[in-house]
Design a protein around this nucleic acid. Structure first.
Lengths: 212, 212, 212, 212
DNA sequence: GATGAATGAGCATTCATTCAT
DNA sequence: CATGAATGAATGCTCATTCAT
């Protein structure tokens, strides 16, 4: 069909992989990872069962790739929005948290899968995932620590708080069944502000900054 | 034996069911729900495979019963510690939150299962579980609303906050892999205080109360 | 059907296993181990595919059991014919060799399988098989060494000769395609005498003994 | 490239075939015929999977060609060492046997494959292989018969003995797992002498000849 | 009430080979 | 002549559940 074959054209391979991943996400969400068969994925993608294995090496890898789809933008957002350039810790944290919330919202399904199905991953993949999660926590931890030093954030265990923040942000993906009544904008705002309020030492100052 | 038939002796049935549930919890935790076979449960309980079906109706029901084991103490704690009798909203919330955190900690594995495997439940069971979760949220919501009316808590969306609080408390069960370094006491304290700080309008007052 | 179930009646289990093994031998011989599917065995035995696994744990185990069917009589023959009681080394060796040839002949198919398919065995099983083969070699080696000490057998490397003898006896099972023209009696006699001739130091003496 | 098409340049075809055969031998030895996939062979040779089929017609043919690699030197050795020119039957047999043993030793792996995997061959190929084996047996048979006529060898069934001799010589390839402790020289010598001893009618004469 | 045997659908993965280009 | 993609059947094994006793 095309002059460029898969092996010589990695983009095409990526495209097919993405098609597989996206269909797989839907199936995993709907029926669970374990309950989704490779036959289902084959049917959904229109790619012959045996042919699937030209693009991925195993069902487990598909799950791993699904998680990458989520993690990539979460990690990259720190660069994309130049988080580390922001001087004011409060603004820095608020931006990071808001953008993270956004990514989580947009990848609500992948996030849910991450929490629900990551135990299906073989260690090889799982440790990569956990490592990335730790990296995210560290980023937040750094921001928090600077803010605490400057007395803008409350003095507390920065590592625990960083974990809690990241976790809080998955509230909607995990419990959307009880939060249907909120719009995306409401959710992002509430999520961000809940985080900020619990961290800020002087609410007065905060209100000033926000209204700038 | 025949005189004490199951139907005529519900206690015996309950006892056997509990044995099944407790062994099943361990297996589900260790290997996952999908990866645990009825044969495994039969072996672990010493109850013949076919015989299991005299005590439970399906594998799915076992999972449901496991979740009940977790929910029961969570729901009962409100009575047990007479939460609704506590007049001061701050103290009331703190007690509720602390006790909930305690239950979550003690049933860390079941909580994790709840998040990981509840989608394996058929709707019939799932809706019961979600209903109970909603009940818990409502209880917190009521406390929050009273506190807001009395201006002790910050004015905000009580329903969202109640959801968030309940969710925050599952931090440890879900992400214990990154929180190994904390002791139970540290975790319970930090969890409770994080919730309180994010809710209290006047930190001054709070400190007074706590030191009473 | 029967009052005694499999678990309580190991004989019945053994019977079923034997049925499986015997059908499997035929299939393995005809089509090869790798080319015989569990479905084939199921069909041949009339035992449902899934049910097969109540009697055996894996296809590999079937192959192992096939080899046991061969090895058992080979090992036991030393007791059965009280080989170690025979005082004259020549007579002792001749009896052992003849009986071994007999067993090989009668289990021609299993012997052929042993040589053809033993590489399909996982190490666990393979080492058991090889150990048993070594035991057989040792038995012959002992007889040979005694005969050499008494100067009835030629002085030579007893271990190598024992290996060679055991191997020679598999001539018919392995190369029966070129030996169809001989009767069982001819084969057993020729095989035995070929071994004896190659070992005896004084042919004169030998002829005397045989004609006794 | 196009000028030297395969059909017009049989040498090139032979070269590629040899490359395929030699890599295949290694793979078959290591993993077995059934467990080696055409993909494996493709990877090992660097020849594209579909392209392989320009040089060979099927996987089975590869196996057949592997066996040819073994048989060729075994058959040719009779010419190479001018066996038929040797006048003395004993010397003639000893030379043939020693050279055969040598070939078997040097092609130990192929010999083992021949015994292990030849049943994977379709009849078409298998009968060719067996025919060649029969030819080898005949060659030995002729030598034996002449020696018996001249009363240098023991009177016995020459055909059976020829089969046995050829078979004996595969002892090492087939049972090398139990013969690791011998060197090549030891093995060749012992193998040859075992054959000779079992055939010679007058050991005295034999010793004279050998020491010439 | 307890038990062994059965059932039949399901799983992920791999294969040799053949097109169409 | 070389190549990527396709095909479709086959593999060993496991499962929750249900009979017949």
């Amino acid at each position: 069909m095309s002059a460029l074959s898969l092996k010589k054209n990695p983009e095409l391979l990526q495209k097919k992989r993405l098609r597989i991943i996206n269909k797989a996400i839907k199936l995993f969400i709907k029926n669970g990872y374990g309950e989704t068969s490779m036959r289902d994925i084959s049917k959904a993608t229109g790619i012959d069962l045996s042919n699937l294995y030209n693009f991925i090496t195993s069902k487990e890898e598909i799950l791993f790739l699904v998680f990458e789809v989520l993690h990539e933008p979460a990690v990259e957002l720190f660069d994309k929005y130049q988080i580390s350039e922001i001087k004011d810790p409060e603004e820095q944290l608020r931006t990071a948290v808001f953008r993270l919330a956004e990514v989580m919202f947009e990848h609500k399904n992948e996030t849910l899968l991450l929490y629900r199905e990551s135990k299906a991953l073989p260690k090889k993949y799982l440790s990569i995932i956990l490592e990335r999660e730790k990296k995210l926590v560290e980023r937040l931890e750094e921001i928090l620590e600077r803010g605490m030093k400057e007395n803008i954030f409350l003095q507390e265990d920065a590592f625990f708080r960083a974990n809690l923040i990241l976790f809080q942000l998955t509230l909607y993906p995990i419990r959307s069944w009880n939060l249907k009544k909120y719009s995306k904008e409401e959710l992002l705002k509430m999520s961000t502000e809940c985080v900020m309020k619990s961290v800020i030492s002087d609410p007065q100052r905060s209100r000033l900054i926000q209204s700038q």
